[in-house]
Computed example of a mutant assay.
Amino acid sequence: MTTAGGAFGPILEVMTWVGFVLGLPLLAWGWIAIRRRCRWTQTTAQVFSAGGFKGYRWTDHQNADHRSLLPDAESPGLADGTDVVLFYDACHPSRWGLAPPKPDNPAWTLGWVLTWVGAISTALGFVLLFL
């Protein structure tokens, strides 16, 4: 075996173990977090004003009325009675936004990266075995 192959063998072995031992639990943890997360639902909200505030009034999927107030500085150009698209968490309607939430799950992403590092290291280890 060449010295380059002798040096890469232990490195690939360590990367295989690191990739799989850390990657698979993170992947499982991320998957569980994705399954437990509540979905966000889209609805139409109506703009209203109250004192020095603008607000949104909407009805959730259980026909419960909700109102949220914002300072006028955070809601420029909105006229009373205007309809806007609002997104809210179905489990916690107090969590809402005017844009859909970005799916972020660092455990899932890091789990995929480490698992792929482990898989590629395993494949390269077998290739190196036959060189």
Rank of each mutant, 00 (worst) to 15 (best):
R57G: 01
F8Q: 08
Q62M: 07
L27G: 10
P101S: 11
Q42F: 04
T41M: 13
D72M: 07
L129W: 10
V117R: 04
P101Y: 11
F48V: 01
S68E: 08
G19I: 01
W31V: 02
N105A: 13
V21S: 04
L128M: 04
A99L: 09
S121R: 08
V117Q: 07
F87A: 05
Y88W: 06
L98C: 05
Y56H: 06
A107V: 00
C38V: 07
V84I: 08
V85Y: 03
Q46A: 09
L114V: 05
A50S: 11
C91I: 07
F8Y: 12
P101C: 08
N105Q: 12
D72R: 11
L98P: 00
Q62T: 10
L128T: 05
T59D: 10
P10K: 09
W17S: 06
G30T: 03
L22E: 02
P101G: 13
Q42P: 00
G19H: 02
F20H: 05
T2Y: 02
A90W: 01
S94P: 00
T82M: 14
L70S: 12
Q46C: 07
V117P: 01
P101T: 11
A33I: 01
L78F: 11
A33K: 11
R37E: 15
E13R: 06
N105P: 00
L70P: 02
A119F: 10
W112C: 13
L26H: 03
A73I: 03
L114Y: 05
T2F: 03
G5V: 07
A79T: 09
L131M: 10
I32D: 06
P76T: 08
A64G: 03
G30M: 04
A119L: 13
L78R: 13
R67M: 02
T16Q: 10
W17E: 04
L128E: 06
M15P: 02
G55M: 06
L24H: 01
L27N: 01
V47T: 14
T115A: 15
I120S: 06
F126H: 15
S75L: 08
G118T: 01
G111V: 00
G111M: 01
L69T: 00
E74M: 14
W108Q: 03
C38Y: 10
D104N: 13
R35M: 09
V113Y: 04
A45W: 03
T43P: 02
L124Y: 08
F48K: 06
A107C: 03
A107M: 05
G9R: 15
Y88L: 06
P10E: 11
G30I: 03
T59K: 07
G5M: 06
G118W: 01
T122L: 13
G5D: 15
A4K: 05
G125T: 12
A90M: 09
L69R: 01
E13C: 05
G81W: 06
A99N: 12
A7S: 10
